[in-house]
């Protein structure tokens, strides 16, 4: 730190005053674009706050937990059904197997054309 001698003090104070004047002219207030300010306001206040803490009512909580339980039960049931089907359950008819030739709707066998 530099020593300020008493005989220099006045001059330094004068110089600091002029630095202050320079600063006062350099720091002009700036204005943000009104469109930007309006848009930001809309994002913050106009729409739903994305950071708001959600507090659920008891009914909402019951519905939420109930739906989750139903979902889990359906999933377990589907998986079990599939596994039982794999280990010896009744197999569904395969697609692409030709059906047995049956009678026509009139009840008589089809006649071949000569």
């Amino acid at each position: 730190m530099k020593i300020i001698w008493p005989w220099n003090r006045k001059q330094i104070e004068r110089e600091l005053g002029s630095v202050e004047d320079l600063l006062a002219t350099a720091f002009k207030p700036v204005t943000a674009r009104p469109a930007f300010l309006n848009d930001l306001r809309k994002r913050l206040v106009g729409s739903r706050n994305p950071f708001a803490r959600v507090s659920l009512s008891t009914l909402e909580l019951i519905i939420l937990v109930g739906s989750a339980l139903v979902g889990v039960i359906v999933l377990v049931f589907t998986v079990l059904r599939r596994m039982l089907g794999l280990f010896g359950g009744k197999r569904p008819a395969k697609a692409g197997v030709p059906r047995k030739k049956g009678k026509t709707l009139s009840g008589e066998p089809k006649k071949r054309a000569a």
Partner: peptide, 19 residues
């Protein structure tokens, strides 16, 4: 959690913070 109140604070300080 009052958004309108936050809007009031925003209007007051947005310009200054921007500066």
């Amino acid at each position: 959690g009052d958004k309108q109140a936050f809007g009031f604070l925003y209007d007051k300080y947005a310009g200054r913070i921007y500066n």
